[in-house]
């Protein structure tokens, strides 16, 4: 039993010493808060598996959110700021629990002198201060990391857009919408031109060149109703030339299949 007590007292004294001395080192951390905290986050995973998992999850989840935010405005950045406190609380929880346990243990100690009380108060104060400081610093660091991540993701997105032609896809789609609108506006058929009780489908494929001119108009499949097929073909021919491609589309020609059905 004795060695345990000795160890216990030793640990208390060590703690007291540590907390008593630590305030002298605080200013230093204030000066260069960011790097210190970054290292904290890096080190933590090694210490406990739970934190590791948590931090991993956070890292995984958040970028996805930031992905959906993409290039858009400050509002979303504000949102991400709001989310930070929750995260930081979670991150600091294990520490605080440990500390609390230690404090409880101290309380259970039979000899409670005035000096002890003073020390306890001081310890509590220090703990609070530490909490606040660590909260602040963690917030900052998380924000920094988030920003960095955002920036990285945006940069990566932009890169991928350029490389996989993600942005030209957007232009391609709007161009296809234009094509759709033009053909639709020109498609007319006499109501006596086809049997409206039947399911009909005519597919015509066209190749539109960069300058908007149409080449290779051909039937991919016919409906069997001559007037219906003809009306579909006429709709395309009535449009004549489509608008030229926007430069961002980065294509020389596109092939479009048009399915006509009543």
């Amino acid at each position: 039993m004795e060695p345990i007590r000795v160890a216990f007292i030793l640990s208390i004294s060590f703690h007291l010493f540590f907390f008593g001395v630590s305030p002298f080192f605080v200013p230093k951390t204030k000066i260069c808060s960011a790097p210190y905290i970054v290292t904290l986050i890096q080190e933590e995973p090694k210490k406990s598996k739970k934190i590791q998992l948590e931090s991993l999850k956070k890292e995984e989840i958040r970028p996805k959110k930031s992905l959906s935010i993409k290039n858009e405005s400050k509002k979303k950045k504000v949102k991400s700021k709001k989310k930070i406190p929750r995260v930081t609380k979670k991150a600091t929880l294990p520490k605080v629990k440990k500390l609390k346990k230690k404090v409880k243990l101290e309380k259970k100690d039979p000899p409670l002198t005035n000096s002890h009380k003073v020390v306890q108060k001081a310890v509590a104060q220090i703990q609070q201060k530490e909490k606040q400081k660590s909260l602040q610093s963690i917030r900052q660091s998380v924000e920094d990391i988030q920003r960095k991540l955002l920036e990285q993701k945006i940069a990566a997105l932009q890169e991928t857009q350029v490389t996989t032609q993600g942005r030209p896809d957007f232009y391609l789609k709007t161009y296809q919408d234009q094509v759709w609108n033009l053909i639709k506006s020109q498609w007319l058929i006499p109501d006596s031109g086809y049997d409206r009780g039947k399911e009909l489908l005519t597919v015509i494929s066209i190749r539109v060149l960069k300058d908007g001119s149409v080449q290779d108009i051909k039937f991919e499949s016919e409906s069997g109703e001559a007037v219906f097929d003809r009306s579909a073909l006429m709709a395309i021919k009535r449009v004549g030339n489509f608008p030229p491609f926007p430069r961002e589309m980065l294509k020389d020609s596109i092939e479009i299949g048009i399915r006509f059905f009543p």
Binding site: L172, Q176, V179, W180, I183, K184, W187, L188, I189, P190, D191, G193, V203, S205, S231, M234, A235, I254, E255, I256, G257, I258, R259, F260, F261, P262
Partner: peptide
């Protein structure tokens, strides 16, 4: 990448 299909239905019921 090669070909996109557009669906068009409901034509204007107007004689030629």
């Amino acid at each position: 990448q090669g070909k996109v299909y557009l669906n068009i239905n409901d034509p204007d019921l107007v004689p030629f």
